[in-house]
Design a protein around this nucleic acid. Structure first.
Ligand code: SF4
Ligand code: SF4
Lengths: 133, 133
DNA sequence: TATATTACGGATAATACGAGTCTATGATAT
DNA sequence: ATATCATAGACTCGTATTATCCGTAATATA
């Protein structure tokens, strides 16, 4: 029960992009070396973010990644869901129906966490970021 | 990023014990067949709960498991921590100190979930449990 | 047009971890 | 003495994560 490293990479990348001049394209090399991860692996993660509509990419020389227009609304939860999926943290075989109290406790606990992550917008955090990532 | 099945087994077992007559010892066989899990595996999990001081065990014929005196105070979070450990869900290499905003967001999100799980006492839930687990 | 640069995709490998089994040992009631 | 039951360690198995390799497509630039 841990957040994956991929999620970690995705969050750092998104915040770095948010702290950069908006229009500028940034290649995966620059993003990767800053996080000490291989370019090929980070590339796969960024492709997920592209497909989730959070960033856009440009191939070819001087290509790279850039935030999309809707950036202001993107939350931590959006990034996490894009990488880890949206399945519930708690699942049981033998489902005894939605009135089960165990499920209710576990699911609502997860929702408390998600609510907090949904309220944290990347744009807000980027403003407050002190130095480097 | 999912709760382990072991946590699931532990929660169900604890709630079943809570719904049983307090003094009575219940063997692992009975607990295991109810959850469709092997006795040897469930046994390992229960041993963790014993070491965490939540239940007590008696060896030998007619032995088994039973809740401890402090049962009223035990929460969902206690059980989960006993099985999954207490390490943070979010960890980063390159730790840039506690003032990092990313860490703060992730850790406080986890704390929101934990707060909710800490408030859910097994004894409370056992009273409200409708039928079987 | 040719070339360098860059993102994308599939296949594959390495690693870690969860889930589960097997077996031996020790404790306890009858 | 024997059957029952919990405990502990070694071990296997499957799957998800992490990561690498390589070929292809797109694009800027000379
Ligand atoms: S009791 Fe609740 S949590 Fe357990 S298997 Fe049934 S529905 Fe799932
Ligand atoms: S920026 Fe924050 S989350 Fe990222 S590595 Fe540094 S301390 Fe950890």
């Amino acid at each position: 029960m841990k957040f994956s490293k991929a999620t970690n990479y995705a969050l750092h990348t998104m915040l770095f992009l948010a702290a950069s001049p908006q229009h500028k394209l940034i290649g995966v090399q620059q993003l990767a070396e800053r996080q000490q991860v291989s370019t090929t692996y980070l590339s796969k993660i960024l492709t997920k973010l592209v497909k989730a509509g959070m960033i856009e990419s440009t191939s070819g020389a001087n290509g790279g990644y850039r935030l999309k227009r809707n950036f202001e609304e993107i939350s931590f939860l959006d990034v996490i869901h894009a990488i880890e999926g949206t399945a519930s943290l708690f699942e049981c075989e033998m489902n005894h129906g939605p009135e089960c109290l165990i499920q209710q406790v576990m699911v609502s606990a997860e929702m408390k966490m998600e609510e907090h992550l949904r309220n944290q917008k990347l744009s807000e955090l980027a403003k407050q970021m002190p130095v480097v990532l």
